[in-house]
């Protein structure tokens, strides 16, 4: 609960610091002179067309989805890792083998992802 208060204070502090700094800088600097050329998006100095319907490869989505899934697997490794040392004294075979089963399925998932070409030229 003390960490929670501290976390909230730090978040508010960092946000206010950034916002105040940007606000201060915008007030102190020279007045903004808007010109047509200056407000264009930067395309290496050329006046490019701005058609925003760029097609983006679906690989990025796939990486994001795979990241979610493997992240969840990693989350389950943390509690196991904490009690591994303690439970070695009581029930070593059990705790070793159950995680090996979990990791076997996880490794098979990674192997499938690799072999099916989802990680190709990413």
């Amino acid at each position: 609960m003390v960490p929670l208060i501290a976390i909230m204070v730090i978040t508010v502090l960092a946000t206010l610091f950034g916002a105040a700094l940007l606000f201060f800088v915008s007030k102190v600097g020279p007045k903004v002179k808007i010109s047509e050329i200056k407000s264009l998006s930067y395309e290496c100095g050329l006046v490019g067309e701005e058609k925003k319907s760029t097609k983006v490869s679906v690989k990025f989505y796939l990486v994001a989805i795979l990241f979610i899934l493997f992240d969840i697997e990693i989350i389950f490794l943390y509690p196991w890792a904490i009690i591994y040392n303690d439970m070695l004294t009581t029930n070593a075979v059990f705790i070793f083998s159950e995680m090996m089963v979990f990791m076997a399925v996880l490794l098979f998932g990674l192997f499938y992802v690799w072999r099916s070409g989802a990680l190709r030229w990413d």
Partner: peptide, 12 residues
């Protein structure tokens, strides 16, 4: 120097 720069944002 950064403090005294002009503050703008792209048009769109």
């Amino acid at each position: 120097k950064f403090i005294f720069k002009e503050e703008f944002s792209p048009n769109k």
